[in-house]
Design a protein around this nucleic acid. Structure first.
Lengths: 106, 106
DNA sequence: CAGTTATATGCCAGTCAAGGAATGCAGACG
DNA sequence: CGTCTGCATTCCTTGACTGGCATATAACTG
């Protein structure tokens, strides 16, 4: 269960920003740092955490290290959310039903 | 965007355990503490964080404070996951296609 | 090989969250 | 009103994480 590593990785706002940024396309470290307003060392460290959580993969291109998103671990989160999503949906349903019952004064 | 509070709240394993526990049914603080192997003060603190993230609601019953799960904030997470889920699914699709192509040696 | 670019790492100081023990507080109950 | 129960809050200590800076490392360039 490196589930913990995944949560920890995504708990940080900067790292979520990186992940979101990589959603667009893979990028080298420097570019990531710039876009997220991070120093290069800081970006490197965050990327390390993301790598160890399996969220990011590296491809070496000359001196550059192009980091790409790996969405696979997100599936674990998705699975974790499952039961709550059910609850949430049924709550919405209940709300909808109640709204329907009272909807004559809309 | 108290999105951050939500992530922070769920980043902690104990709090995830509490949330999972409350999935079953609402419970008073003492019960939660016992089930999660937490001291009473610790449980109280974690519940406070969960409350402030909107994940938990309290109903007062005599001296007891019965905490119940509120799955609504989870929707935010779900929304955040959306784009990644797409990617993930398409990756699966791609994998499936590749497996199909090579599936004569199954 | 010397120099430059792109990135990783080590070290340090500041910050913050977590756990434990003790205490405060409100409701129940005789 | 005194007491007990259930929970919240405070204080304190400790460990973890973060950022910055300096430095090491690796790969390209001439």
């Amino acid at each position: 269960m490196s589930d913990a590593a995944l949560w920890t990785a995504l708990a940080d706002p900067h790292r979520r920003a990186i992940v979101t940024l990589l959603l667009e396309r893979p990028r080298p470290v420097g570019e990531i740092a710039e876009h997220c307003g991070l120093s290069q060392p800081s970006a490197s460290k965050h990327l390390k955490v993301l790598r160890e959580a399996g969220l990011v993969r590296v491809r070496q291109d000359a001196q550059r290290r192009v980091h790409a998103l790996d969405p696979a671990p997100i599936a674990a989160l998705d699975a974790w959310l499952e039961p709550y999503r059910r609850l949430w949906n049924s709550s919405l349903d209940a709300l909808g039903r109640r709204l329907d019952e009272t909807s004559d004064d809309t």
